[in-house]
Design a protein around this nucleic acid. Structure first.
Lengths: 332, 332
DNA sequence: TTGAAAGCGCTACCAT
DNA sequence: ATGGTAGCGCTTTCAA
């Protein structure tokens, strides 16, 4: 900047003002300086600028993997979310700083905040970190979390109505004539827990449906595949699966097909998330849709408002059941 | 830091040294200061540190989407790569700064470099930006690009041997008895161009195989699906598809199945990438595997060496054909 | 309308 | 082994 000042025959102060478009600098003068800077290939040093301004124009996106630490960002859901966040954060003029957290390690939030690397934090999924997040939120305002909402928690979440979504999915199976519906998923994670709750309610709503059956399984494709294989070998009778995520659903279908069962004729399957690939599997997957793009937009919007000092409430989006082939047609 | 200095009764210089683990500070003294800092919840301000040190401990990961600007990071390949990069960059103690670039816009590289936000740049896929990258690489060293390699280009690339990989995939189809093999993909992108080249060579190697047929299609699932539908409607006869990416392959299978054709009985399909979902589709997809995790590791390693001043050559990894169900068994 | 000067929080030089 | 001081590149008072 000192160079540009010299070239333009003015002080650094004036260059700074001109580049910032300040009206304190006369228009012709301003344009002249901007042109010199551009021609000289000058780009403002954001580190220095940020130090002076006490901000970073960067948003941290944190992915806690307490539930699957060895598996690197495997879930297409996370990764789709990451893509939409990159999109929206860039659009709003910020940079995105991505970091994966593999607990146990309880000071990650404190270190991240203290480092001043970012102006705000988005956490994708509570994983096993609910209490760490809760503690941080007491004193750190610019924080938005994707995940399940619960009245106990005081931090700002954005997410889908998991209970209603799961309930709608299971109700659909029941209406199609399915009676023994198994839930696949790990209820230790807050969101999955809520989906399980929706599943239970749907079963309770209807008479003549078998009792709730849960198969706890991790969220990775391999783990879900093995869970389903083991379940089939167990010899239990069932005619439908409600999977806590699409990754689980897709793996379950593969295991079912591999065992000689037909989907949906023998076993109907419904997933959750409606990831991009759900429409492209064979049979195409019926799934409870979460609007990830919208979720990303809302999170970024809320976070920027929090950065600006506003105190925003949590947001819950409606879930929508997308019916495809994997749940079959009605039968009686 | 001034606070910590006061609390410890030493100067800021000494605190700085103690926190850096300098042996200029006596061990007991050092430990004492570190403890005070930790107890006081002190975290070093990375912006100030970086300004002083003239570095950022951050790596920029750029995703140019010149070929599909409206589609936000749709390709599972990109997104898997992003995950592995996040993993590896974090492991090496750096932060990852992600930015999506939607050309046309030819100064993105210059602005990114000039802003000093990162110590080095990884570009995932050349997209349509080959010349921009080439130009930047002349003066900016810490730059590594995922993509196709070509003797014309002087920048450092990491990628798979696309020609050999595609060739192996097509040879496999031919050996299984397929004779009319269609290539689906957009050869404008450097990597896809090389895969097409491998396809052509495989056809040339063997007698009695139909001429090369290419259907240019974008890399998105929807575009590929439509391309295949249109191709089927065109009434051409063919018994195999070599898809430039798994996304194209999976969409093609869906379109084929939807048109009443059996995969692999009527049409065999081979993809490229071996994304996580390839093993989980139905039928499971035969694909030319790129070791994305390894690629991410190599890119980060090369980039860090370049940041350290070393001049590293490009790296090409071997491709491996992973045979599953979608290509069928031998027939004569 | 412009410039001089201070200072963001840190590290490293040069003293002692 | 430790402290004082300068300075990284910028923005913003304050004074003119």
């Amino acid at each position: 900047m000192a160079d540009i000042a010299k070239m333009a025959g003015v002080s650094a102060s004036t260059v700074s003002r001109a580049l910032a478009g300040s009206h304190l600098v006369e228009k012709t003068q301003r344009d002249r300086i901007v042109k010199i800077a551009r021609d000289g290939g000058y780009v403002i040093n954001s580190t220095a600028r940020n130090l002076r301004l006490q901000r970073s124009e960067t948003i941290s996106v944190i992915i806690p993997l307490g539930h699957a630490s060895t598996q690197p960002l495997s879930d297409p859901f996370f990764v789709e979310m990451l893509g939409y966040l990159a999109e929206e954060i860039t659009r709003r003029g910020y940079g995105m700083f991505v970091q994966k957290i593999s607990p146990p390690m309880d000071d990650w939030m404190h270190r991240l905040i203290g480092s001043h690397r970012s102006d705000g934090i988005i956490v994708i999924g509570q994983s096993t970190e609910h209490s760490v997040i809760e503690a941080a939120a007491m004193s750190y305002r610019p924080l938005v979390v994707w995940g399940g909402h619960d009245r106990e928690q005081s931090y700002c979440t954005v997410g889908t109505d998991n209970v209603a979504g799961a309930r709608a999915g299971v109700q659909h199976l029941i209406r199609l004539g399915r009676r023994r519906i198994v839930f696949f998923g790990d209820p230790k994670l807050p969101e999955i827990h809520l989906r399980y709750e929706g599943y239970r309610r749907a079963l309770k709503d209807e008479a003549g449906v078998g009792a709730a059956q849960i198969v706890p399984t991790h969220l990775t494709a391999d783990a879900a595949y093995e869970s389903m294989r083991a379940y089939i070998s167990g010899g239990k009778t069932f005619d439908a699966v409600f999977a806590a995520t699409d990754v689980i659903a897709i793996s379950a279908i593969r295991a079912l097909t591999g065992a000689g069962l037909n989907v949906p004729a023998d076993v109907a399957v419904v997933g959750f998330d409606d990831i991009a690939l759900a429409a492209h599997t064979n049979p195409a997957l019926t799934s409870v849709r979460q609007d990830i793009r919208r979720g990303a937009e809302i999170m970024v919007d809320l976070l920027l408002r929090r950065i600006a000092g506003e105190d925003t409430p949590s947001a819950t989006m409606a879930a929508e059941l997308v019916v495809r082939e994997s749940c079959g047609a009605a039968r009686h």
